[in-house]
Simulated scan of single mutants.
Amino acid sequence: MYYWYKKMKDVPGSDMGGFTRILHSGNPDNLMEEIPSIVVDPLPEGLDRGYIVLNRPWAFVQWLEKATIEEEYILMAEPDHIFVNPLPNLAHGDHPAAFPFFYIKPAENEKIMRKYYPEEMGPVTNVDPIGNSPVIIKKSILEKIAPTWMNVSLRMKDDPETDKAFGWVLEMYGYAVASALHGVRHILRKDFMLQPPWDLEVGNKFIIHYTYGCDYNMKGELTYGKIGEWRFDKRSHLRGPPPRNLSLPPPGVPESVVRLVKAVNEASANIPNWDTQ
């Protein structure tokens, strides 16, 4: 991610400013000198119940309190994001920009949503179908939302019905609800991000999110759910970075997947000590 941030930052059309990696382990790591980073504390032991993402809103609360942030707007993004086009400020004034996720469905979960977004606040359709990432938002607005995001997420995790219903996207719902509680609506930008293998072309989109495994046979046919003869899946590299010079997909595989692998290969070829850190 950081390699492609640096490459795209000063390209015409980009509004990107500084970069900060927020590390919520509580301890510095071996990338501190390579990537601008700030270390914040994790939640008290046991509070995340093994759901490590629950540390994210608390990390943002600490960062916003500790850091000197020169920019007026903040992009919240994740390590499995690759910038593929220069990113302008997609927000407009007090209206943040966000990517709409098809699996965040406030209206279909109204009974649960009402535990956190009461009827007097309005219809649950006021809750945007988003998570906190990718989002471009005014810093002053995020400073108001972040503590609520943390508290709502903790309450959700503490409620068995909510925890079961929302699962691994619980913290995303936490951000969406917190935003709505503060009366914040997001501009929904489908072009903010693409997610291979389902999105086939990069086009004018800005970020590749490589969250899904990409499995294909040698005919270029998707074999999702079954390990392919050719595959790229970040979960294959949990113990270390992927090797340099990954094999390219076979003919017929969508351009988005080819672009993803080429982007990883370019970054790994140009980052010193790739295989040793």
Rank of each mutant, 00 (worst) to 15 (best):
residue 100 P to N: 06
residue 27 N to Q: 15
residue 85 N to C: 07
residue 52 I to L: 12
residue 47 L to P: 00
residue 63 W to Q: 08
residue 81 H to F: 15
residue 99 F to R: 02
residue 20 T to Y: 12
residue 41 D to A: 13
residue 53 V to A: 10
residue 38 I to S: 05
residue 63 W to K: 09
residue 49 R to D: 12
residue 83 F to I: 14
residue 78 E to I: 01
residue 15 D to V: 03
residue 66 K to A: 11
residue 86 P to I: 02
residue 52 I to D: 12
residue 66 K to S: 12
residue 32 M to I: 14
residue 84 V to E: 00
residue 24 H to T: 09
residue 50 G to A: 07
residue 81 H to G: 05
residue 58 W to M: 13
residue 104 I to F: 06
residue 34 E to Q: 15
residue 98 A to I: 07
residue 45 E to G: 08
residue 105 K to Y: 04
residue 44 P to L: 01
residue 20 T to P: 02
residue 23 L to G: 01
residue 43 L to P: 03
residue 21 R to T: 05
residue 98 A to Q: 07
residue 76 M to E: 11
residue 24 H to I: 11
residue 88 P to E: 00
residue 20 T to G: 06
residue 31 L to C: 05
residue 26 G to P: 01
residue 29 D to C: 13
residue 51 Y to D: 10
residue 15 D to Y: 03
residue 62 Q to P: 03
residue 26 G to L: 07
residue 29 D to V: 07
residue 17 G to Q: 01
residue 56 R to M: 10
residue 85 N to W: 02
residue 51 Y to T: 05
residue 13 G to T: 13
residue 99 F to G: 05
residue 81 H to S: 07
residue 52 I to M: 09
residue 16 M to R: 10
residue 19 F to H: 13
residue 17 G to C: 02
residue 44 P to W: 00
residue 87 L to M: 15
residue 73 Y to F: 14
residue 26 G to A: 04
residue 104 I to G: 06
residue 59 A to H: 05
residue 47 L to H: 11
residue 70 E to G: 13
residue 88 P to F: 11
residue 54 L to P: 06
residue 90 L to N: 03
residue 58 W to K: 13
residue 61 V to M: 08
residue 105 K to C: 08
residue 83 F to E: 02
residue 34 E to K: 14
residue 81 H to Y: 15
residue 92 H to N: 13
residue 50 G to E: 02
residue 47 L to G: 01
residue 18 G to C: 01
residue 105 K to W: 03
residue 85 N to Y: 00
residue 41 D to Y: 08
residue 94 D to Q: 11
residue 87 L to E: 09
residue 53 V to D: 11
residue 99 F to N: 01
residue 17 G to I: 04
residue 29 D to E: 14
residue 53 V to P: 03
residue 30 N to S: 15
residue 60 F to W: 15
residue 70 E to W: 07
residue 72 E to V: 01
residue 83 F to D: 04
residue 90 L to V: 07
residue 28 P to L: 05
residue 75 L to M: 12
